[in-house]
Design a protein around this nucleic acid. Structure first.
Lengths: 193, 193
DNA sequence: TTTGGCATGTAATCCGTTACATGATTAG
DNA sequence: CTAATCATGTAACGGATTACATGCCAAA
């Protein structure tokens, strides 16, 4: 029986397996760049985690001679790869999101007039901006990663961001209308779903 | 300067303001029923939180005489309502989701063949089932809450669930295709956005 | 030369879930 | 009678963020 690892450990293992050997600092940058929308790790997690992973023989650590800096580079071991693969094969734990914007919307009746509308407006704008950015990123990644085996997965991740951001924007716009029109219904768009 | 409260406190205050006086047990049930998709609270949070809220004069506690059980009923005070309104007017803290399904998809290249596909299939099915359930719930709430001031906000919350679940389903289906077709591109649906 | 980025770590704190503990009431 | 539900709480634990602390290197 493998001891149960926290997800942080597996995420780090995954990044190392996917992106090749790198430092704790690099891992952070890699995550921030590629999946920050859906996953985050702080240094306060990464460095202790790397220690633990090394202690358990899942990664190896070596000093980076090439760099003029005091850099440690980590690499996944075979055991590490096996553990990662096994974890990836397990059904993902269900998310339990906590969305403050939606909570505040739900409680909108208790809010000062206009406040929720403002939140929703900002929410929609952020989501729309994100869609634009991600579309750009998709094009870029299709170019730069063309041919790599990881490409479809990288694209899938970006597409997730696009789909979800689009949904957020559409929802927020709809919610604004819904709240504006108060009780005179007919705002559902079930027909064209 | 108001001391900074954890979101749990405000959520409880909000539920009490919205749903009327109720017990800790009721608060849990109310949340589970109405916004469980976007917000959760456990008893381990609720009961201590209620104590704190009472100590600070944001809610009042009284024994429920009507019930044959040993029940405490909480009610928001004026100060509580003021604090709630002020919090609702503040811009919501940005969410930082951790989506294990998407993380695993991103790392798909490291997974045993077919594993990710299976996760995505299940993800899509769950999302589709949720859409169906929420549509039903929307119809129901429109009926039962018709005319109340909170109706548009309740509907908006359900609509959020529908939009997001729909996006998840669509994404998962698309991602399956994307991964299946591996490197032979042309899966983006940017045109009809 | 001083700012920003690279680089690594620890400690405090917060927050949340889970498990545990207890007991009454009600429906089957 | 007995299982489920109502009802309230505490304690242990785990996991994550933030702040703190330190220092070197490169570019402006």
């Amino acid at each position: 029986m493998e001891k149960t690892r926290r997800t942080t450990d597996l995420a780090i293992l995954g990044v190392l397996a996917q992106g090749g050997p790198m430092s704790g600092y690099d891992i952070k940058a890699y995550i921030d760049l590629s999946i920050s929308q859906f996953w985050g790790e702080s240094f306060g997690q990464i460095y202790p985690a790397l220690k633990g992973l090394e202690a358990d023989g899942l990664v190896t650590r070596r000093a980076d001679r090439a760099s003029p800096r005091d850099r440690a580079v980590y690499e996944v071991t075979k055991r590490g790869r096996r553990l990662l693969a096994a974890w990836l094969a397990e059904p993902p734990a269900p998310e339990r999101p906590r969305n403050e914007t939606i909570l505040k919307t739900f409680l909108g009746d208790q809010a000062p007039p206009g406040a929720i509308r403002g939140h929703l407006e900002a929410y929609a704008e952020r989501a729309e901006a994100r869609v634009a950015r991600l579309r750009e990123q998709e094009r870029e990644v299709r170019r730069t990663d063309a041919g790599t085996r990881a490409l479809p997965f990288a694209i899938a991740t970006i597409r997730a961001g696009i789909h979800l951001a689009r949904a957020r924007a559409a929802w927020a716009r709809e919610a604004i209308a819904l709240i504006e029109n108060l009780s005179q219904g007919e705002t559902s768009d079930d027909r064209h779903a």
